[in-house]
Design a protein around this nucleic acid. Structure first.
Length: 111
DNA sequence: ACCATGACGTTTC
DNA sequence: CGAAACGCCATGG
């Protein structure tokens, strides 16, 4: 659990670094971690994020399309959308508008 | 070691 | 433009 959690822990770490009013994609996180092909694992880690002591802003993590694919895993059906909209992000039909504006790339911001 | 699953991503029809 | 298929990789049984 400890050694393998390292991968997940990295995901949670980056997820918490997402600034307010910004979002990122699983692929970008995976890429930042050096596993660009492991975008699915990022989602898997998010699934286990609830097991983490510190809460992870998983609602700020969406797919490359800016689609709230993971909203189904939240408490309700539109909780994830409400949280993002509360941060000033506009969402239409589970899809983030002006994604390029709100998209936050760790490898770019964190260099 | 093999098979099945998954909050993704890209390519193809 | 929309849907489906394939690829990719880690975890669990």
């Amino acid at each position: 659990m400890n050694t393998s959690d390292n991968f997940f822990e990295r995901v949670y770490e980056v997820a918490r670094l997402i600034p307010y009013g910004r979002v990122t994609s699983y692929g970008e996180i995976a890429k930042y971690l050096g596993a660009a092909r492991s975008a699915r694992m990022v989602g898997w880690a998010m699934n286990n994020s609830h097991a983490q002591t510190l809460e992870v802003p998983a609602h700020r993590v969406v797919n490359k399309q800016g689609l709230l694919t993971g909203k189904h895993h939240f408490q309700g059906t539109n909780v994830m959308q409400q949280l993002l909209e509360n941060e000033g992000i506009i969402i239409k039909n589970n899809q983030i508008q002006d994604l390029e504006t709100v998209l936050w790339i760790p490898s770019q911001e964190l260099s």
